[in-house]
Design a protein around this nucleic acid. Structure first.
Length: 393
DNA sequence: AATACGGGGTT
DNA sequence: AACCCAGTATT
């Protein structure tokens, strides 16, 4: 089939299919550029079903550019809690403030302007320009690269930046006149619902008959992509420090540094442990998953003693915090894309602080006041399991 | 070009 | 357990 005809068929059929198959998503109810922007940032590396409840809460809390501009950063971070990639939230607020101040609150429609905003890369710029302003800009994400790799049987490695550029060029050619927003969304929608990474539903695909990957019997092996490196393992000892006296019923928490992993999020105090020896049972070899104390036989008390001493010393040395670990209560693990945490959690007693004052990044947390602090999911799980243990035991 | 940066769903 | 996702910023 002629190259040109294959492209025209694709664009026309895909657009028609979208017209009858598109999902009713909260950010599709109007073309408010601020809504589109918020949704696109949330959707970076995140599935639609995960985003929907966050989007509703976020827009309710910060309905306009002005509202988000004036919000305290902690509230924005709290609204993002559990969504991951927290720099997205900080960059979004920073960029929204820029729009508030430099563009009179109007999301810019010039490519150079919008691309200059923090957190707005080539995909997001194209998505906002096409969806909110119907400009003929490509919006190439993982879905689009997969769909086009299959339909046109492209064998470039989609992990390479050069491939994204060439697919952007192709995607732009395919945009039907005046239909940029719907076409770009159609492309992503097809990738998310039909042309899925594995087990694609080719038989229901609107462009099946001219899909080169399918015709070659190679749809499932596309796109080509070099594998990511496996995450590096880390072991951490976590202190669940119970307050007493004036702080009875509270837990000791601390805020992470301004930059880097989980920047400015709150967490339980913890310390990195040396990696266990590969062979044999190292000290307190981590078990899999989060488990309650009663759910399994404890690891030998011996090894936990060593870890507890280590934890006590590390927190004293690093933060000047005096705690006394009393018993192992659970293991937890958490997988980031680049790090894997195996965590040993210990119930601790608060002893003292060297100078009687808590360091500035520490707080006593009332379990009823969790809404004031944004925690990464791994610590929410640990705290939740802890509460369960002490209300049912 | 490679790495940092979360978290969860699917197979 | 592997794979991958409506990516961007930094180095």
């Amino acid at each position: 089939m002629e190259d040109i005809l294959q492209k025209q068929f694709f664009s026309a059929e895909l657009l028609q299919w979208y017209g009858r198959s598109k999902r009713d998503l909260p950010w599709r109810r109007n073309k408010n550029p601020y809504y589109i922007w918020v949704s696109e940032i949330m959707l970076q590396q995140t599935r639609v079903d995960t985003v929907i409840p966050y989007f509703h809460r976020f827009i309710e809390k910060f309905p306009t550019v002005a509202a988000l501009s004036h919000a305290p950063e902690e509230e924005v971070l709290k609204a993002w809690e559990g969504l991951g990639y927290y720099s997205r939230a900080r960059n979004l607020q920073s960029a929204v403030r820029e729009v508030h101040e430099q563009y009179n609150g109007i999301v810019p429609s010039a490519k150079a302007d919008i691309s200059a905003l923090k957190g707005v890369g080539p995909y997001t710029a194209g998505a906002i320009l096409s969806i909110a302003y119907n400009q003929p800009e490509p919006a190439v994400d993982g879905n689009v690269m997969r769909v086009l790799s299959r339909y046109f049987l492209l064998e470039e490695d989609i992990a390479k930046a050069s491939t994204r550029i060439s697919i952007e060029r192709l995607a732009q050619e395919l945009i039907p006149a005046g239909e940029a927003g719907d076409f770009n969304q159609a492309l992503m929608e097809l990738g998310a619902t039909v042309c899925t990474p594995r087990a694609p539903q080719c038989l229901t695909c609107p462009v099946l008959e001219h899909c080169a990957g399918r015709l070659a019997g190679r749809a499932e092996e596309l796109p080509l992509k070099t594998k990511a490196k496996p995450p590096r393992p880390e072991r951490r000892a976590v202190a669940l420090v119970e307050g007493s006296g004036a702080h009875a019923g509270r837990l000791l928490i601390r805020q992470r540094p301004q930059d880097g992993l989980l920047a400015r999020m709150w967490e339980l105090p913890h310390a990195e442990l040396p990696l266990a020896a590969a062979a044999g049972e190292g000290a307190a070899a981590p078990a899999r998953g989060t488990r309650r104390r009663s759910g399994r036989a404890s690891a030998p008390e011996e090894s936990h003693d060593a870890v507890m001493t280590f934890l006590q010393e590390r927190l004293a040395a690093a933060d000047g915090i005096g705690i006394v670990p009393m018993e192992w209560i659970m293991n937890a693990e958490h997988a980031f894309s680049h790090i894997h945490w195996d965590m040993l959690v210990y119930r601790c007693r608060y002893a003292a602080v060297s100078n009687l004052m808590l360091p500035p990044n520490y707080r006593w947390l009332d379990l009823a006041e969790m809404e004031q602090y944004a925690f990464p999911n791994v610590f929410l799980r640990i705290i939740s399991d802890y509460k369960l243990m002490y209300t049912t035991d």
